[in-house]
Design a protein around this nucleic acid. Structure first.
Lengths: 129, 129
DNA sequence: CAGTATCCCCGAGGATACTG
DNA sequence: CAGTATCCTCGGGGATACTG
């Protein structure tokens, strides 16, 4: 038995009376909201950046996770990787058109979070104290 | 040394030439983009729901993770928990005003993902084949 | 019905070393 | 510079049993 509240039916990703466990929406959502996905996409929304720039800009990310996140986002068609055959190597990362569309939805979200984060976290602190 | 690209300075959450590892924005972002955070918030955006309804609607979530996610979101002030002293117990969960503001940014994101997920995932399949 | 309490595992993710 | 390769840890998260 599933919830039959008609209001739910309007939700994106909602289908067949629930949020299905195995579906493409959930897969993409997991990629985007992976530990570093949002930050990488957000950073690239400012324009093309090199590997080392990304690494330094996103504080705390390891080389392994940067590589892994970039590969996933590239496979999903969000990120474009452009390697130049020079020495020392130079690789530039940027958003594809699809990536930009996604980032357009991420920026308002992150903007709101950045605006409200202090009150949210401090409020929790005050409650616990 | 940090990236000095002036375009980055406009990004929400960006500060002091980077996305700082320890900051309130990152904490809240992690809560929201936790494995089940987005789905719980999205589900509640349709209106007040009971524990069991949430559990059935969000397919695949365990009792432990539902409880944990709800507690975190409640502590952040996104979710309101209303318990009625009846037998059998009845507890309703809904979004606070703050939670609704957040959900307003989540819905366009999830909407875009739901609209494009098939192409994104199938495109990756085709590439790999 | 709405949760807690407990146990346990696996894999996300970090640290380090190495390479073209 | 831009990665890979390898090893290892830790805690996210699931399964199950139990309770007011």
């Amino acid at each position: 038995m599933t919830v039959s509240d008609p209001r739910l039916d309007d939700l994106p990703g909602y289908s067949g009376g629930r949020f299905p466990a195995a579906c493409n929406s959930r897969t993409v959502l997991d990629h985007v909201t992976s530990k570093w996905g949002v930050l990488v996409l957000l950073t690239l929304s400012a324009g093309s950046l090199r590997w080392g720039e990304l690494r330094r800009t996103i504080e705390g990310i390891s080389e392994k996770m940067l590589a892994q996140t970039l590969r996933t986002l590239e496979a999903d068609g969000f990120v474009l990787r452009e390697a130049q055959a020079v020495i020392p190597p130079r690789v530039d990362y940027s958003l594809t058109e699809r990536g930009r569309e996604l980032a357009d939805r991420l920026i308002p979200l992150m903007g709101w979070i950045a605006d409200n984060a202090d009150e949210i976290v401090d409020g929790g602190m005050r409650q616990r104290a």
